[in-house]
Structure formats: structure tokens, C-alpha cells
Design a protein around this nucleic acid. Sequence first.
RNA 1: CGGGACGUAGCUCAGCUUGGUAGAGCGCGCGCUUUGGGAGCGUGAGGUCGCAGGUUCAAAUCCUGUCGUCCCGACCA
Length: 608
Amino acid sequence: MPLRMSTLFLRTLRDDPADAEVASHKLLVRAGYIRRAAPGGYTWLPLGLRVKNKVENIVREEMNAIGGQEVHFPALLPKEPYEATGRWEDYGDGIFRLQDRSGADFLLAPTHEEMFTLLVKDHYSSYKDLPVYLYQIQTKYRDEARPRAGLLRVREFIMKDSYSFTVNDEGLNEAYDKHRAAYIKIFERLGLNVVAVEAMAGAMGGSRSEEFLHPSGAGEDTFVESPGGYRANVEAVTTIAPEPIDYTDAPAPEVKDTPVSTTIAALVDVANELAPKASGSWEAADTLKCVVLTAVLDGEQRQVFVVAVPGDRDVDIKRLEASIAEALGVTGEPSIEPATTEDIAKHAQLVPGYIGPTLLQDAQAVQMLGRNSETGIPFFVDPRIVAGSSWVTGANEDQKHVFGLIAERDFTWDGVLEATAVRDGDPAPDGSGPLVTRRGMEMGHIFQLGRKYAEALDLKVLDENGKQVVVTMGSYGIGISRAVAALAEAHHDDKGLIWPINVAPAHVHIVATGKDDEIFRTAEDFANKLEAAGIEVLYDDRRKAHAGEKFADAELIGVPLHLIVGRGLAKGTLELKDRLAGTRGDIPVDEAFDHVVNLVHNYQQQEH
RNA sequence: CGGGACGUAGCUCAGCUUGGUAGAGCGCGCGCUUUGGGAGCGUGAGGUCGCAGGUUCAAAUCCUGUCGUCCCGACCA
């Protein structure tokens, strides 16, 4: 049965909703696919649900094709499994927690590693049962601080998550490769341009990890690519350290007056005026910027530390967070924020604006930063601070800087961290050329979990020697609702949406215009015959709506092919509009059926 | 969590400065006209002005609090 505009539960809007910013949000609401029902929560209306179901089914087919088996968990779960892996605490206020009538703690699951692990533990105990790939398509919950951009960032969303269980790393690699190939196929079939980029395994633990990003200005992730094909999330980019410099003949460091120079720009100006460089002039890159930061653990414990970076570079807190826990030797996931005035005041030796690694006393360099220094503050440096490099930096005295301070000779550090923001033009870690940064939306993420969850929840099987081995896991996600938003973002023009055929709510939109009964009989006939041939039809059978209204609705809704039955019928023609190709033209009535069927099939094959 | 803007009809908004019986356009109902680009005329229905306190004879309007929304920042599989 064709969908009929006269009875479809749909009200298109002429104006953009006031709370919408990005195109996908505006268009999905205006065209009647979704409606906001709660902060960060959207209702799927009939048209939207059809698109969502098509996306799900494509994902389902490709997961089944690599041997995945679908299951379905509750979203409401007890806290105990998440306590066992530490994530009840690690997630902090990022998840929804609630209590039942007896006061027992529950959560609305943000992701299901623990439950899948326990499910397999429940059923299997032998290597002969493995590998097994399980997945679900499920509603997930995160307590987003700031839902925004329609379906792109919400508190309740639909995600496909799958998990592989294998006896060893070879099995894991195979599962990972299969998922990777399946993901590429899924995004091809969806008609969504994505690139695979190296990612940090991050909070989930594990090793190999890639994200599938849809390049888009509306995206919230930054990734880089090089001419040689290197692609990575900025969080995963590693810096190539320069070669160490021989400093045997380097002159001793010298403290100079540098009045009112608490910023790098001011310091460079003052240095060029009062202490000109032997050749050339001082640049921001000659200075060593010591940034005081605070790692906050479990929202309470505050650990002040300092990172030193070249003065022309910005600190990237996200990149730092990826490695700070290990560097500080703490467990959990500390968040990092700029140190507050109170944090700094606890360390009286620090002179804000003039902080540096050393204090020169009687020509002796006294280390002021670092665990074994006067202050005991952990001190880390960017990889660009190599042995022998020479710096202008704070002298730990008011309005004084030290010039010619040599790394390793005059100061040491507790560790090297990726602390700076990646910039356009930085070299790719694999030597494949200069990097360019781009924005993207995260559509999928695959990673090798290894044994973290299996160990925490004691998932073991007997191997062929009868010995207990910990199962190796991988985890693989695709955002279903976010994919719908990304598709809308990628496929629209100034009039409305233009869905790829495989995800469109219908294949053909038949528009009957005019008042002649013959027109409506013909349109009705086409709608029924096309449906019988397996073509999905949205039929605008409204008698009272004006032609302009119908055309505007059809363009807004975005079914890719429009078949218009109207004034041409008297001379035996229909109009076919192809929004994907951007073409329109008249075709004889008796050729229209075959033409439309062929066109739909062609598009379906292209997208497969 | 910081900074800014905003909350009035299904949607987009005016009214608030200067307190005095709730407005427009679109959408919706009915009638007539119109029918290839969101048409016209007429006539209706629809709102405890986000919520709670306060000031006042009187509050959409002034004050306080609170909830929610959007933007920037912080944060974020």
C-alpha cells in the first residue's frame, strides 16, 4: 500500500524551528521526521521511523553477513557489573543513575560491555565455542551536559554495538578486520561518506582502534590527514621529536630583567628590546611556556602539575588527558583543567607569569619543577623539548626570565607527554607529509578491548590443553540515530532533504496536481502498480492542496524521485523529477512505469 | 560548571522600556472562489503569557527564585 499524504501523520513546517542551528536539525523537524519531546530526546514520527528502520536493517544485514548474532539487553541495569569493572565510578556524572523502591542503584546503560561479557560467561566455557560475535541495536543513555544540534548530540540515542569473543589475539585481529570491512560496506550502502582514522582506545582500554568519521563542518571531532594517506584523530597523533643537540660548548644560562612580560607575546617584545638575540630576533618558538594545570580525580582530588611547551604552541587538554593518568601514576580517568588561583597559591615558590623549571642561585641551576625538586610538583615536557635545546623561560623571580637554559643540562623532567594542539603543517608521524586538520562527526568506532573486561568479570574458557584462559574481546559501535542526522546533513539542498534511495522513506513521490478526476485515477493507478512491483511510493492524493504546496512539501520531504501527474496528462505525458541527478523532464505515460522501475533499480545497485 | 541571549496559540514572532480586560502571520474548522510553485475573500476555534513567590488597587510587563531552550567556552563512546 502506498503511503498517502492525505492520511499520513505529518505536518510540515514553513519556518525553521527557533531552537535549531544545523541543517539536519532544521530539516528533519520541518519535514516531519522527528519532534523534540524531552531535553536531548526526540520522537520518531512515521517518516523518520521509516528512515531509521532502513538504516538499522542495512546495519543488521551486514552484521549478520560476518556471522554476528543479534540479541537485546535491557537498558535499565543494576550497578554491580559496572562496579566490577570500575566504570560505575569512572563514568562520573556522564550516566543516568537511579534507584528502585528499595534503594538499590541502577543505571541507564551508556554501552554494554559488561553485560555481553557476563552473557557469554553464562553460556560458554570452552575454546570450541569461540569465536562468537554478538550485537544489539539498542537505545543508549548518556547524561550529556549540553544536548544540541538535533539528533547529533542527545541524551537518548540508538546505537548498534557488537562484541567479539575469541581465544587469542589472532582471533581478535580477524574479528576486528571483519568488522572494519563490514563498516566500510555499511557506510557505502547508506550513502554516507566516511573516513577511517586512527583513534585513542582511551577509556575503553585496549590497543588497536579506529573511528569512522563523516567529514563535516558540523562535526565535533578534529582529525588530521596527510598527502601520504595518514589519518588520525588529533588525540592519537604523536609528535616527531627533533634530534638531541650537542650542548658541550653552549654558554651558561643568564638571568635578565624582563619587566611586565607575563605573556609570551609581551616576553618576546621585551626580550627583543632589552636583550636582543645575537642574530635574528626572538620568536615565540624560542620560549618555553610552563603551563600550570590541575588533574581532578573523581571530581575531588586535585593534583597540580606543570607541562612545558614551546611558547608558540597551545596546550591541548584532551590530548593530555589521554596520557595523564599513567604519567601521574594514578588509576581512573582524571580530568584536567587550568589551575585556579588557589591551586597555585598553595605553592609559594611559583611566581605566576615567571614560572620556569629552574632558579639560578650563585650560578647554580636549582631545579624548581619536578617530583624531586624544591616544589615537588610533577613536571612534564612536550616531545619537542629535547636534550640540548635552548630556551628563554621564567626565572621564578618577579619580572625576570632566564636566557639560554639548556634542556637536560640545566633542567630535567618527570616525563614526556603529548601536550600541544596539532596544527596544520605539522609532520605526520609516519613521515607521509604535512598534516591538514579537518572536522568530522563520529559515526562508528571499533576497538580491540583485549582482556580488560574479561579479566574484571572473570570470563575464562578452557583451551585445547585444558587450561583456563581469559577470553579476548573487541567492541564495535555505530550510531544509528546519529547516522540519520549525518545523512540529512550530507544530502540536502536549499529546498529540503534529498535521501539516497536506500534510506529514503519511499522511492518515489507521486504528486497529483489539478482537479480532474482522470489525473487522480492515473496517479492512483501508478501508485498501486509501482507498489506491486516492489517500489515504495509516497502518494500525494490531497484534493484541496495547491500544486505549489505539494511541490514544496515533496522537496522538503526529500523522496529522491518525483512523478508528477498533472497538466501534461492531457497530451499523454508525466513529469519525472530526479532530485539526486538534479534533472526533470516529461515522459510518455505508457513508458513511465518501466522508466521509474529501472531508475530505482539502477540507484539501488549503485548504492550497493 | 563559567559568559551571553531567550521562554507569549501547533510553528515563527510582536507586545514588556512607560503596569490597566492577549496580538499578528502561517497552520487548523466552516462557506465561497481558486487549482503547476506554500492562492483569495469571509467567518470561527485555539493561549493559567514556562513555573513559584513577591511588589501593587491592578503584573505578560517590575523584583526574587526556579525549570527549560539556544549560542560561546569547559566537558564528552
